[in-house]
Computed example of a mutant assay.
Amino acid sequence: MSERIRVMQVIARMNVGGPPMQLITLQDGLDQERFEQRIYTGEPGEEEGDYLSLRGQGATVHQVPGLGRSIGPRDDARALSTLVREMRGFRPHIVHTHTAKAGALGRVAATLARVPARVHQYHGHLLHGYFTGPKRAAMIAAERALARVSHRLVAVGEQVRDDLIAAGIGDAGKFVIVPPGTSVPPLPPRAAARAALGLPPDVPVVTFIGRITQIKRPDRFVETARLIRGAVPQARFAICGDGELASVMSREPGMHMLGWRGDMETVHAASDLVMLTSDNEGVPLCLVEAALSGVPCVSTRVGSVPDVVADGQTGLLTACDSRELAAAAILLLTDQALADRMGRAAAISAERLFGTRRFVDDNAALYESLYRRNPLLTESSGRR
């Protein structure tokens, strides 16, 4: 049998969210007779849920001190040194980086360690809603330079790719699109789910899922909730997640703060709809999982959200405006037949577009392509 293709995944931290979920899906799904994988990661922040403890199901990772989200010269230098040393020991054929900081340190380390193939994945981007002025210009300049030392750039959706190319980060020939993929467990009975979460059994429930940070606009969610309650007074709002702006939501009447949870099937079963109020997104896994569970979604029309939610068919999309979001939510909360129809359509569409098998196969094809087309890769086989 030919030598396995060695793939080193590098990510800043395994917090609750889409990128860690994708890495665990690959670790479980790729053919172990063909691929040898390792995940290298830093620590989640204090207010971030730990994906490994909540949903990792015994996944193995390699810890890299200093690789967490925060930026600092000493930690960054320590993480870079560790990554170079680990790459020289593991001798991966391919380094696949995820998230901004790990993407920078991982690609620099892979260049220094002379790794034959370097891939970076954009699960979203930082072009909108994060930086302005000189900081934004510096970030774009850095990403342009890093793109030049990358053999492939992966985007989770067409809009994410197009935004990056428009900013001069990579070109169409270097990008490939690999939408995320996942699966969800069967839903428990609605009444049992409501009881487990401490929610009333007979009221409409609108759910927010994710990090409670500025880019997710918890203030917009609160404004929207107030407008919804004006038309549907009995409505309640389930907040599944945590973050530095959690108090913006927790102070508002009608908010049920659930924190980070590993049983998302319980959350979905208890929800009438899932709402996303963000200013910027890639392909949000919270909407993908909700759709797979047959829960209709209401979201701002940002990033590659339209790849998940077909407006008017599997959910409703709006501008970044609380009044539009509230009107869409009120429509679904007061028209059960429409909500049920959109939920069923969402489940069918999500299974086709975001199923696990398709996702694993797409990544396997990417790795095989890099391995076969780069002579340094095939020459390195057997010289470990």
Rank of each mutant, 00 (worst) to 15 (best):
R301H: 11
V288D: 02
G181N: 01
F237R: 04
A231L: 05
V10P: 02
A166W: 09
R226F: 00
E289R: 09
T207F: 00
L127N: 08
G243M: 06
L153M: 08
I215L: 08
R107I: 03
A339Y: 07
A365C: 06
I330T: 11
Q336K: 12
L317C: 05
T60V: 11
E86W: 05
G56M: 00
I39K: 04
Q63A: 06
D311Y: 02
A235P: 07
L67M: 11
R357C: 04
L227G: 07
L376S: 14
L187K: 13
G42F: 01
A142V: 14
A137P: 08
K135R: 15
S53E: 11
N363D: 00
A196C: 06
S53V: 11
V267T: 08
Q57S: 13
P233G: 05
G18V: 05
H98Q: 14
F175P: 10
N363G: 00
E86H: 14
R358V: 07
H125G: 10
K101A: 05
Y371W: 13
I39D: 03
S304P: 07
R344F: 00
L187W: 04
T25F: 00
H120K: 05
N15S: 14
E47S: 12
N15D: 14
L227M: 12
D171R: 05
G198W: 03
R383L: 12
E48R: 02
L325T: 01
M87A: 13
S349H: 08
E36A: 14
G303L: 01
D171C: 01
R161V: 06
V309I: 10
E379S: 14
L333S: 11
R358Y: 03
H62A: 07
A326L: 04
E351L: 10
A113G: 11
P284Q: 08
E289H: 08
R85Q: 14
L331S: 13
T60L: 06
E324W: 03
Y130Q: 15
L153H: 02
